[in-house]
Computed example of a mutant assay.
Amino acid sequence: MPETARTTPRRRPAARAPLRIATWNINSVRLRLPLLRDLVAALEPDVLCLQETKCPDEAFPHEGVAALGFAHRLVRGMKGYNGVAILSKRPILLREDDPDWCGKGDCRHLGAALDAPGGPIELHNFYVPAGGDIPDRAQNPKFAHKLDFVAEGTAWSAARPARRAILVGDLNIAPLEHDVWSHRQLLDVVSHTPVETEALTRWQQAGGWHDALRHFVPPTEKLYTWWSYRARDWRATDRGRRLDHIWVSPDLAGGLRRHAVLKDARDWPQASDHVPVMVELAA
């Protein structure tokens, strides 16, 4: 009687551990360092990108951040304003050749290679200029700087289409109709003017970036990440804007699993006017 052929069952490849990327305009890392513990407890990010750290590199609170589990840190800061940081539980390596945006050296971008199970991920953390109050290039140099910055970002993305890449940060533009509390009333307000929203859309399209937050929340639904300090009761009026963004390259979009907008952070003591946002993806 012939021996029955035996086959060895194929092993399924192990599922990749999800990667959680969060971004937050912290509006002073030293002032709000205690709030990072609450953020970590709520979102458990593997990587946290901060904007407006307002802290020169030599004064960055590395010890306090390391105590939260972020063994790997990149910082680029200056005294009093701007500043960006990438805090990671996974190894990261600084990208050395990224642009000096608008030739100002004003600490608005950090690029890094992030260790991930599927291979390194190119990670970019941006703080785009706010642009002042007058939406006119000729009258307002701050607005001109903002438009020039976004134009440089667009050309940069067009020259190097995104692959295994993530771009996050406070981009200071709410591009879609339902990214603001009133599209009609904010059309002439900096952050939602047509010239800005069209410029940001061109940047996104130039690199083929996928809007990770709108992946989960349809464009027909309201989505905010910022509420002004001027509002007496920000939650009751809910006059928000979506200024904080996470974009992923098309090859990572299929791995998106979930998102979070930590709205309750707006009620924390000494809160930032921005709240943390996070996406989880298989990477």
Rank of each mutant, 00 (worst) to 15 (best):
A151D: 06
L110Q: 03
H72C: 11
G77M: 10
A66R: 14
Q139K: 15
A67L: 10
H62N: 03
L93R: 15
R108V: 14
N172H: 13
L114K: 10
A130G: 10
R90N: 15
R164D: 10
A159K: 04
A85K: 01
W156Q: 06
E58W: 08
R164M: 10
D136Y: 05
T154G: 06
K142S: 12
R73H: 09
A159N: 13
R95G: 06
S88Y: 13
R90C: 11
A159I: 15
E63G: 01
H145Q: 15
G69T: 03
R76S: 02
G64Y: 06
G131V: 02
R164Q: 07
A174C: 04
K79L: 13
A116D: 11
A66K: 05
D57F: 02
L87Y: 04
I92R: 01
A113F: 04
R76G: 03
G69H: 00
G64R: 05
K104G: 12
V75D: 07
A59F: 02
L167Y: 05
P61S: 08
A144D: 15
H62I: 00
E58D: 10
R76N: 08
A151N: 14
C107G: 01
G64S: 08
H124K: 02
A67S: 03
G153D: 07
R160G: 08
D98I: 03
H109T: 12
V75G: 07
H62Y: 03
A59L: 01
G118V: 01
H124D: 03
V168I: 13
G132N: 00
H109N: 14
W156C: 15
E63Y: 00
P61Y: 06
R73Q: 09
W156K: 01
P129N: 01
Y127H: 07
F70T: 03
A71S: 14
D57K: 00
R95T: 00
A138Y: 02
G153M: 06
L110N: 04
D136R: 11
S157L: 14
A67N: 15
V65D: 04
P161S: 11
L147I: 12
C102Q: 11
D115N: 05
A165Q: 13
A165D: 09
G132S: 09
G119D: 08
E122G: 00
G105M: 12
D148W: 03
P161Q: 13
E122W: 05
L94C: 06
R163W: 05
A162G: 01
G118M: 04
A85Y: 04
D97G: 13
R90F: 10
V65M: 07
P120L: 03
G77W: 09
L93V: 09
L93W: 10
L93Q: 15
I121C: 11
D100N: 06
R163H: 08
P117I: 05
W101Y: 14
F149L: 11
D133W: 04
G83Y: 09
F126W: 13
